[in-house]
Write a protein that binds this DNA or RNA. Structure first.
Lengths: 215, 215
DNA sequence: CCCCCTCTGTGACATCAGTCACTGAATGCG
DNA sequence: CGCATTCAGTGACTGATGTCACAGAGGGGG
């Protein structure tokens, strides 16, 4: 069992040094997360760094009235950059993370992830790279909200979704509307227009994507 | 002169260890920046980590059509987190940074700032803290764009401006509109409304802020 | 002191997005 | 099979923001 887990981790995090992998195996816990389950909540204290072993997480922001918008997805091999930062100062999460598929996450106690920064070069590089990648993705999201109309944002959203989970987008219009902080009717109309261009085909509860770059 | 500079640095970065300060003094360059001058440009390769010694920088995003929006301000003692991250991989800047007042910046060659992460605990903490603070500010900006109407965003903008440069806001309506990616007429109207509540008084080329929390 | 240029104020209108009200279609369950 | 529930489609309306056109105010330089 242990060796199996080790292989799993190795596969997703091939860049880690051998001794680091050993430490991860012996010191961290692996948690199974169901689809729809929350991994991080806004306001929660963070005591672990979160690495994703399998599945898919969405990281999003939620305001006081329950509005939300998607920041980015985390795929196997990714880490929640925010959980690394909060960790260092024992602070509260500013974001929500929820499994959109059954997932396995590795929880590394804060003090270790902190310690490893100095101890393992590969860990240090991984943390810096994670910060940077998330920051960049966040900037892209920000751009699309700040500069683009809903039609382009929808395209951007669909492209990203296709990238992480394929051309069968299994989402209702309502779910999409939520993640874009919009309303169902509006999304329905825009999707209809997209269908008319031939880029997608609409079905109940899922969308078949053909080619979004045509548009 | 050297000792004067050292005192200056000490004053803004009291958390740095003595040997680190020595290295900064001997290895980095200090650059005077005029008001309006660009410190970082989108697309530019970054070879230095940027620390702000005096003055004020605004960090913002610009799209292909010249639209912009403000991400946050950097004050003396702050660092450009993005310049730290790009640095590590010799990558291109994703953002713009411009002096909004005459400023002095410290430019630290990338390889040193990288090296110091392992060498100086205080540097390491500083870098992590910078990442985190910028990320949080960016999230706030994002929230206001995603969830709030222009009226609230304007309030948020004014509050932030007051915090970094006082209650005499020396900006034209046009400049504010640019930083919020809006248009002058709209900002004029909203400011007028604010004036009617007594929160501010409008003048040519500047706004006198009384109390923004009244609103 | 006058002229010009920039900044500001304001009404009319256009456009995008959100809301409401309703219909019909697909699915699943008893 | 039939009903209930969820999902999707659509027209009418509203409100916020952006655009256009223009007027007036303030300040600085010749």
């Amino acid at each position: 069992m242990d060796t199996l887990q080790k292989d799993d981790i190795l596969k997703q995090f091939p860049q880690f040094e051998q001794p680091l992998l050993e430490e991860i195996l012996s010191q961290s816990t692996i948690r199974q997360v169901q689809e729809g389950e929350e991994v991080l909540r806004t306001g929660q204290y963070i005591r672990s760094t979160v690495l994703l072993l399998s599945g898919l997480l969405k990281v999003y922001r939620e305001d006081d009235e329950g509005n939300e918008f998607l920041m980015y997805y985390l795929e196997p091999g990714d880490a929640c950059a925010l959980s690394m930062m909060c960790t260092a100062r024992n602070e509260q999460s500013q974001i929500m993370a929820k499994a959109v598929a059954p997932s396995e996450v590795i929880l590394i106690p804060s003090h270790l992830s902190e310690l490893w920064l100095g101890k393992y070069k590969s860990w240090h590089n991984f943390v810096i790279a994670s910060y940077r990648e998330r920051f960049e993705e966040l900037l892209q999201t920000l751009d699309s909200i700040a500069f683009k109309g809903l039609d382009e944002r929808l395209l951007f959203y669909l492209k990203r979704h296709v990238k992480v989970s394929g051309k069968q987008v299994r989402l209702s219009h309502q779910q999409i509307a939520d993640e874009l902080n919009s309303s169902r009717e509006v999304i329905s109309r825009l999707l209809k227009k997209l269908e008319q261009t031939g880029a997608i085909t609409l079905h109940r509860n899922y969308i078949e994507v053909h080619d979004l770059d045509l548009v």
